[in-house]
């Protein structure tokens, strides 16, 4: 088994060898490590992407808007990097659509990290595959295949509001149960607690 440290270092160098800057290569190394740790086939997808990288003209996305369409296909590295760099700004879009992106799995790793820096969950849907990015702590998905995803013609991204996954009733029931661990205080005990006997208006 290759260690995650080996994966990160090798990917960083391989990305540089493909002509990306060292700073971008550091990001890609970190991201592929992340995908592999989350159980997604990051290295395999990147390897395939790099095989065709020099013979196809992949596009840079530049400034991201609510709807983005490539003439050919977007480069998942530059697209991901720009999404990550602009994530505090593009939060204003409720939904973002990206049409035509190559090797979208590589792009996903940037979204996971973006979720952490903006402090919001991000939901992504492409075809019938769904991904939920949880503050870079985990990725929840219905995609369990270890296959290479060569392209996606349409990706929809939503920034999710920070809200709980339960109703107020669920909460109240749980809270009611939790207070059963409390103990009634005696009068004597009350008179010895912090602040007792003093005026709070001093």
């Amino acid at each position: 088994m290759r260690s995650y440290s080996e994966i990160e270092t090798t990917i960083k160098r391989a990305t540089k060898a493909k002509g990306f800057s060292w700073g971008i290569s550091e990001e890609v190394g970190k991201n592929i490590r992340l995908l592999e740790m989350f159980g997604l086939p990051g290295l395999k997808n990147l390897n395939q992407y790099f095989k065709i990288y020099n013979i196809s003209n992949f596009e840079n996305i530049g400034e991201i808007s609510s709807s983005n369409t490539a003439k050919g296909y977007y480069c998942p590295v530059l697209c991901g990097l720009n999404f990550y760099d602009q994530s505090p700004v593009i939060l204003k879009f409720n939904e973002i659509e990206i049409n035509k992106i190559a090797f979208p799995l590589i792009f996903l790793s940037f979204l996971s990290r973006a979720s952490e820096i903006i402090g919001k969950r991000i939901f992504l849907k492409m075809d019938n595959k769904e991904f939920l990015f949880n503050f870079n702590e985990s990725i929840y998905s219905n995609y369990l295949s270890g296959d290479i995803l060569e392209k996606s013609d349409k990706i929809n991204i939503k920034f999710l509001d920070n809200k709980n996954n339960f109703s107020e009733d669920d909460w109240l029931e749980m809270h009611k149960l939790s207070i059963k661990t409390y103990v009634e205080e005696s009068e004597e005990s009350k008179s010895r607690t912090a602040g007792a006997g003093l005026t709070d208006n001093d």
Binding site: S21, G23, N82, D85
Partner: peptide, 18 residues
């Protein structure tokens, strides 16, 4: 100007911005 925007055109210096 924001750093995110600056990096759009200056990713060759990303390692030192970090």
């Amino acid at each position: 100007s924001k750093i995110g925007k600056f990096l759009l055109d200056n990713n060759h210096l990303r390692h030192v911005v970090r």
